[in-house]
Computed example of a mutant assay.
Amino acid sequence: MGCRYMIADSQNEPLCRAVLESPPDAAVWRLRVLDGGLSRVLEHEVVNLISTGENAPDMTGRILSSNRKDVLEVEPADLLGEALRQNLRVPVRFDSFLYPVSGTWTGRVPVVCHDLSCGGIAFFCDFPLQLGEVAEVVVPITAQPLILRAKILRRRPSNSAVPLYSAKFVDMIHDQEVLVREAVFSQQIANRDAQK
């Protein structure tokens, strides 16, 4: 009990965060909703429940009721795959640096983040990077700034004169995954609220 969840709609648009107050094997889950997001959740019949914990399942759930102002009862329905976590992606801009791991260059290279997901990062970088090389990238928007290893996957089309690269995080430990997942979800909520 006490596992943190991110609640999204069926299109994976973020709604709010919540804490599971019942056992994960219960027939009905009791979730304490955070972020004042209960009214947003109650607009839906089915939601995606994405765990930030290692041993808690990701589920779709059917909303049953809300007995108090911040408690939601949900009937867990189907397990969600790991791909859902990896695909949580948010446009976000921040300045950062790359450090070489497998490349032949030395020092640090400035980059500007284009978007961040639980599985990787896209960034603008004026330095020529080799596909397949591994570098460390600083991610400053998590609760605690992280230095993560990322493998350069491809160069993406862009309207900018500065090349845009996509990279996949590698060798992440669970605590790093949780911090990135929470940062991505929080940024999605902030972006959604800013658009309103």
Rank of each mutant, 00 (worst) to 15 (best):
G2F: 03
G2L: 07
Y5R: 05
Y5E: 03
A8G: 02
E13D: 09
E13Q: 13
L15H: 00
C16I: 04
C16P: 02
A18C: 07
E21L: 12
P23A: 15
A27H: 08
A27Y: 03
W29K: 01
L34H: 09
D35Q: 02
G36N: 06
G36L: 03
G37P: 00
L38H: 00
R40G: 06
L42M: 12
H44I: 07
E45W: 04
V46C: 00
V47F: 05
I50T: 03
I50G: 01
G53V: 00
G53F: 06
A56F: 00
D58H: 12
G61I: 08
G61C: 09
I63K: 06
S65F: 00
S66G: 06
S66N: 08
R68N: 07
K69V: 11
L72F: 00
E75G: 04
A77I: 07
D78R: 15
L80I: 11
L80V: 09
L80G: 05
G81I: 02
L84Q: 12
R85C: 04
R85W: 05
L88V: 07
R89M: 11
P91H: 02
F94H: 06
L98G: 02
L98V: 09
P100I: 10
V101G: 02
W105N: 10
T106M: 10
G107S: 08
R108C: 10
R108N: 12
V109A: 04
V109Q: 09
V112L: 11
C113A: 15
H114C: 12
S117Y: 04
F124T: 08
C125W: 01
F127Q: 13
F127P: 00
P128H: 04
P128I: 05
L129I: 07
Q130T: 15
Q130C: 10
G132T: 13
G132Q: 10
E133P: 03
E133A: 10
V137H: 02
V137M: 01
V138L: 14
V138A: 13
V139P: 04
Q144H: 11
P145T: 08
L148F: 10
A150L: 08
A150Y: 04
A150V: 10
K151Y: 02
K151M: 15
R156F: 04
P157T: 13
P157Q: 11
S158K: 08
N159A: 13
S160I: 07
V162P: 01
V162N: 05
V162H: 03
L164N: 05
S166Q: 12
K168Q: 15
V170I: 15
D171A: 14
D175W: 02
A183H: 03
A183G: 03
S186R: 14
S186F: 00
S186C: 07
I189L: 15
D193N: 14
A194P: 03
Q195E: 13
